[in-house]
Design a protein around this nucleic acid. Structure first.
Length: 712
DNA sequence: GATCAAGTTG
């Protein structure tokens, strides 16, 4: 061992010789040996330590390959892979500089190249190694980095070939090689092959288990990943930090989260920030926001990820105000947000009912000032927030100016047009996109839902068919749901039923939900019954469906059935989500619940509302009491309709804004049918544009019409 | 030498 301080002392002595010759001349001390440099390089904690060492290496051992590789690896670990790469370039470009037959040195060079990010050159070097007159015979140390390079490059054909090499040379069952193979197959999506390699192994290390758990987790099998983790514990394999970091993202149930948390404490891994951040993420996914905050407050040395995780957790819990507050706080504390922090707060802004266009602009401004707008993902997230705050134009402006767009960017812009009922533009973009890249199953959800929102029936069918024939994408439930929606809109309920029957997969609640939605517009007892039966079996806790069903029964005149649905809902303990509508005025948000009297202007609002209702009745509005409470008299029902949060917010907006300005409101649930009709009339008699976002889409009301064409 | 490490689309 060469303790670090000794190397520095030796270096210092050696360097100080010319400046201060001793009065009794001694032979100058020799510069440190390469091996002591290697130790020093590997243990250097920062670039400030590494760079002088690098300089000294250049002076004393410029041609030492072992040292060069050690330096390159360390540069890469400290975040400067390119700095190290230049050290390896001469040997990588001219392998004859590497002694033939010296597998150890060849392995080092291959590994150095992989760690410095030169994956393609590492693979090229490996191929030279394998040539008959080439460098050296690969061994068990050669394969892990080479397989990693294949994964990184996505070159799985090469990966399979290298698997063959490893088998041929007898290294296939080496634990390290086997682990790397499992990782490689997992990243290529061949989780079955990975599982087979795992099952065949006689001796598995903790890394083997962790890799296989990760393989299941990353290929969309979180439940199986958790099950494998439990099996690992049963077989008394001690999990380590990486195991927990791998398994935690699979957890969505509180009891699993608690179990894991206890285990982490038992293994004394709870003090590391990285682990604490992951525990926060786990509880956030379980919906335990108070627990997440408690953990966050308990972290002594919060890093940027801790802050981002907390903001992300608030965004997930639909607590945008808290997310924004924390975002401001961290800036006050001079903690500089990065792209991930910004992604968290932007997502909160996109989804929350209490975020406004103003918030989207503030976040966009911050992204520009901090230069994070150059980042593709941030830019895409900002587009999304503009779309969801109702400003398609701002979104499109950024979209058009982007230097680079990916699948997600296109999908967001397409679904954005869809949400606003502008199906033609959505299709136009989709056609442009098809020339540039292959759409995926989510792009098709975007474009199909755009067709259904805009009532583009033929175009929808065309897209649906081309998905499989042209792009080889297997239709998921969501795609079928869009098609049922399309058929339902056209009133073709029988066709929709046939379509569902012919589905090659089991229809899920999105499909039955579409059919039930169709029954709202085209009431039909038979299909309502059919959709409801399946829905109550598949998703018995969804309160919106009970209410929708009850409303459909009411409109069919089946008052008793409607009542019994409400009773069933109470009996099953299904919690009704309180509806509310938010409106922004002068950078302030105002929230209205049904029958709300908390606003200081309440008296004025209700007086004005009464007047407005009379005006729209004169214009032809008829209150639709299907959407009112049912156990009261009709006159009271009409009154209760008047008090809906949508109407209160709109009237508040009318009173407090200039006559020509657009009113923007946001309802947390689907807009009520009666409010939808009323708003159409309001837009007509007041000559106002009203934009209403609900949980499903945007409604643009203007001159008595709505962009959704009365189907949503 | 192998695993993990805050994150955008319906």
């Amino acid at each position: 061992m060469f303790p670090r301080s000794n190397v520095f002392r030796a270096l210092h002595q050696w360097r100080s010789v010319p400046d201060a010759p001793p009065s009794h001349p001694l032979p100058p001390p020799l510069p440190p040996e390469p091996s002591s440099f290697v130790t020093a390089v590997r243990s250097s904690a920062s670039l400030r330590v590494l760079k002088p060492l690098h300089a000294a290496v250049l002076r004393h051992h410029p041609d030492d390959l072992v040292l060069s590789v050690a330096l390159a690896c360390r540069y890469s670990q400290l975040g400067l892979p390119r700095a190290g790469l230049s050290l390896l370039s001469p040997a990588a470009a001219d392998p004859s500089l590497v002694p033939a037959g010296d597998t150890f040195l060849w392995n080092l060079l291959v590994r150095g190249l992989v760690e410095s990010g030169a994956h393609d050159r590492a693979l090229a070097l490996y191929r030279q190694m394998r040539e008959p007159r080439g460098g050296a015979q690969p061994n068990n140390f050669t394969f892990p980095p080479v397989l990693k390079a294949c994964s990184y490059l996505g070159d799985f054909e090469e990966g399979v070939k290298i698997h063959g090499d490893a088998a041929e040379l007898g290294y296939e069952s080496d634990v390290f090689v086997r682990n790397s193979l499992i990782a490689m197959y997992s990243k290529s999506g061949a989780v079955d092959t990975a599982k087979r390699l795992f099952d065949e192994m006689p001796d598995r290390s903790v890394v083997t288990w962790t890799t296989m758990i990760g393989a299941l987790a990353q290929n969309g099998h979180p439940e199986e990943a958790l099950a494998l983790f439990r099996r690992m514990l049963e077989e008394r394999v001690r999990p380590n930090r990486a195991t927990f970091l791998t398994v935690m993202p699979c957890v969505i149930r509180c009891d699993d989260a608690d179990d894991l948390h206890k285990l982490i404490i038992r293994y004394r891994l709870e003090s590391e920030v990285i682990v604490q951040n992951a525990i926060m993420g786990m509880y956030s996914r379980c919906g335990k926001i108070e627990q997440v905050r408690k953990l966050f407050d308990g972290i002594a040395e919060k890093d940027l990820a801790s802050w981002s995780s907390m903001i992300e957790a608030y965004a997930r819990a639909d607590m945008f105000e808290e997310a924004m507050k924390l975002f401001r706080n961290m800036k006050l504390l001079e903690i500089v947000p990065d792209r991930v922090t910004l992604l968290g707060v932007t997502r909160g802004c996109s989804n929350s009912a209490v975020a406004s266009l103003r918030h989207a602009q503030l976040i966009h401004g911050f992204a520009i000032r901090s230069l994070l707008i150059e980042d593709l993902m941030v830019e895409t997230a900002v587009i999304d927030s503009y779309v969801r705050r109702g400003s398609l134009n701002s979104a499109r402006r950024i979209f058009d100016q982007m230097r680079e767009k990916n699948l997600v960017t296109w999908s967001i812009m397409i679904s954005g047009y869809g949400m606003h009922g502008r199906g033609v533009e959505a299709l136009e973009l989709f056609n442009r996109m098809k020339c540039l890249m292959k759409p995926d199953h989510i792009t098709f959800v975007s474009v199909l839902s755009a067709c259904s929102h805009a009532g583009l029936i033929d175009e929808g069918w065309q897209c649906f068919n081309s998905m499989t024939t042209e792009f080889g994408i297997v239709a998921h439930s969501e795609h079928y749901a869009c098609m049922v929606d399309l058929l339902g809109r056209a009133g073709q309920l029988e066709k929709a039923r046939e379509f569902i029957e012919k589905m090659p997969i089991k229809p899920d609640c999105s499909v039955w939900g579409s059919l039930l939605g169709a029954c709202r517009i085209h009431p039909d007892a038979k299909f309502t019954e059919l959709a409801a039966t399946s829905l109550f079996e598949l998703d018995p806790q969804n309160s919106g469906r009970y209410i929708l069903l009850s409303n459909i029964y009411t409109s069919l005149g089946k008052i008793e059935e409607a009542h019994s649905i409400r009773v069933l809902m109470r009996k099953r303990g299904v919690k009704k989500i309180a509806g509310y509508t938010v409106i922004e005025l002068n950078n302030k948000l105002y929230k209205f619940l049904v029958g709300d009297c908390s606003n200081p202007q309440s008296d004025l609002i209700y007086r004005e509302l009464e007047r407005l209702m009379d005006r729209i009745k004169e214009a032809g509005y008829v209150p639709n009491t299907n959407f009112a409470l049912h156990d009261v008299e009709e006159e009271t029902q009409v009154k209760s309709l008047y008090m809906h949060s949508e109407k209160l917010a709109i009237v508040f907006g009318l009173i407090n804004t200039r006559p020509e300005s657009t009113i923007r409101v946001h309802k947390n649930l689907r807009v009520c049918g009666d409010c939808h009709t009323a708003t159409k009339f309001i837009s007509k008699v007041t000559k106002r544009k009203i934009v209403m976002r609900d949980s499903h889409r945007f409604h643009h009301f203007s001159d008595g019409e709505c962009s959704c064409g009365d189907y949503w």
